[in-house]
Amino acid sequence: MAAGGDHGSPDSYRSPLASRYASPEMCFVFSDRYKFRTWRQLWLWLAEAEQTLGLPITDEQIQEMKSNLENIDFKMAAEEEKRLRHDVMAHVHTFGHCCPKAAGIIHLGATSCYVGDNTDLIILRNALDLLLPKLARVISRLADFAKERASLPTLGFTHFQPAQLTTVGKRCCLWIQDLCMDLQNLKRVRDDLRFRGVKGTTGTQASFLQLFEGDDHKVEQLDKMVTEKAGFKRAFIITGQTYTRKVDIEVLSVLASLGASVHKICTDIRLLANLKEMEEPFEKQQIGSSAMPYKRNPMRSERCCSLARHLMTLVMDPLQTASVQWFERTLDDSANRRICLAEAFLTADTILNTLQNISEGLVVYPKVIERRIRQELPFMATENIIMAMVKAGGSRQDCHEKIRVLSQQAASVVKQEGGDNDLIERIQVDAYFSPIHSQLDHLLDPSSFTGRASQQVQRFLEEEVYPLLKPYESVMKVKAELCL
């Protein structure tokens, strides 16, 4: 049975990233139509530049190519590739079939990587351009969430054990800070992308030097003109047959890092959902379990974690691919890159769409948070109580021993009897502590235990987050809708 299948058929496997999760716009960027249309555009740009620099290419040939950029006979191309065992030459023939007058000058002087690699770089750039505003929107939604809850005390956790208090907004800023680093890295790697350009079979530009009869300047002009037509500021000066596969490492490393950030955020949300302090959106008709109707599973956060793990592992592909590119190139890269580049971007696209949807509907339960604080705060307040007693004339050592005994009794009630923490009640009825009984409410005010959390939130948002989001103001209103 021949390899390949009808990918629109229910009898043929289709990647869930495309069929179930990723956005239509990201799927289109990695589609065959987008790819092969870009090949034709690159052939047109090459012909236009070659004509401008004096090669015998007519206006009629150029116009014929322009008129057929979208006229792609995919069936013919597939048949040609089956016959020739070469995808680029299959599309040269297919393009030439609908451009008979231009057929002889299509791909003039070029090698397969002229269309293959340059198209990949265009796709990487455009895919990054799709991700950047999506990530900015996630940051914006979380920034709104953090600002609104900047002063809401909550129990902090280290080692997932109760620690000092923080605020809900401050905790959210930990998430935002990681995503801001990801946004900066995505922008950097996007701006650092260079075009492969017009380089020939081993990167020496020998074929173009021959076409222009040894004119170095025209060869350099050709490279520059096509690079500018493709919208790049610069091209690699040095290439082998391909652009260095280190570029793929750079791009997928940034995406993998984004995956790590999203995994951490969504894990926190899942843990908070278990504590009943916070939940992701839950639709009115949504079913959490087929057997347990009360369940409210954090399905979206779980999906993000599941896909983020996949995204983090994909960076190993370009690392290994770059390491086995012998001399000017081997074909070890080809099949692998067809999979890992598309999957990385479709996965990143999915987790950003999902995280935006989550961040637009996060639900906080202040009463649950308050109750958990009441359970733990008495123990945390013991040092403040000791200091207040010393100020009232008591002995630190005597007070410490009193607190120690009462704390152990209260802990026994919590752990052995399943009761509430009654340390404060014990202190309130103990005559030894009568000098500070009137101060206990103040000493137990949760806001006095959150330090500068709310001020940190305000400063972080104003100095770091809002300036970073400013270039994306025009796209901030787009909502994230999930079908599944």
Rank of each mutant, 00 (worst) to 15 (best):
A2F: 15
A2D: 08
H7K: 14
S12G: 14
Y13N: 10
R14K: 14
L17D: 02
S19W: 09
Y21H: 00
C27L: 12
D32E: 14
D32I: 11
K35V: 07
K35P: 01
E48V: 05
A49H: 01
L53A: 10
L53N: 06
G54W: 03
D59P: 10
Q61P: 07
S67R: 12
K75T: 15
M76P: 05
E79D: 13
H86G: 03
M89T: 01
H93A: 15
K101H: 10
K101M: 11
A103N: 11
H107V: 00
T111Y: 04
T111K: 03
V115A: 07
T119F: 08
I122V: 07
L124R: 04
L128K: 06
L132G: 13
K134G: 13
A143N: 10
A143W: 05
S151G: 12
H159E: 00
H159Y: 01
T167E: 01
T167R: 02
R171I: 01
M181T: 11
L186R: 03
R190N: 09
R196C: 12
Q205M: 14
Q205S: 15
S207V: 06
L209Q: 13
K218D: 07
E220N: 12
D223Y: 00
E228R: 12
F232G: 04
I237A: 06
I238P: 01
I238K: 04
T244W: 06
L252S: 12
V254A: 12
L255Y: 02
L255I: 09
A256W: 07
H263I: 10
I265R: 02
R270L: 06
N274Q: 08
Q286W: 02
P293L: 03
P293C: 02
Y294S: 04
K295R: 02
K295P: 04
R300L: 14
R303Y: 01
L307N: 15
L307H: 15
L311P: 04
M316E: 05
Q320R: 06
L331R: 04
D333S: 06
A335L: 02
N336P: 04
I339F: 15
C340P: 00
L341I: 13
A342V: 15
D349C: 06
L352Q: 05
G361H: 12
L362M: 12
K367I: 04
V368S: 07
I369S: 11
E376S: 06
E376K: 05
I386G: 03
M389D: 09
G393S: 07
E401I: 07
V405Q: 15
V405C: 13
A411T: 13
L423M: 13
E425S: 11
F433I: 06
S434M: 11
P435S: 09
D441C: 07
D441G: 09
F449Q: 05
S454K: 14
Q458Y: 11
P467C: 09
M476Y: 15
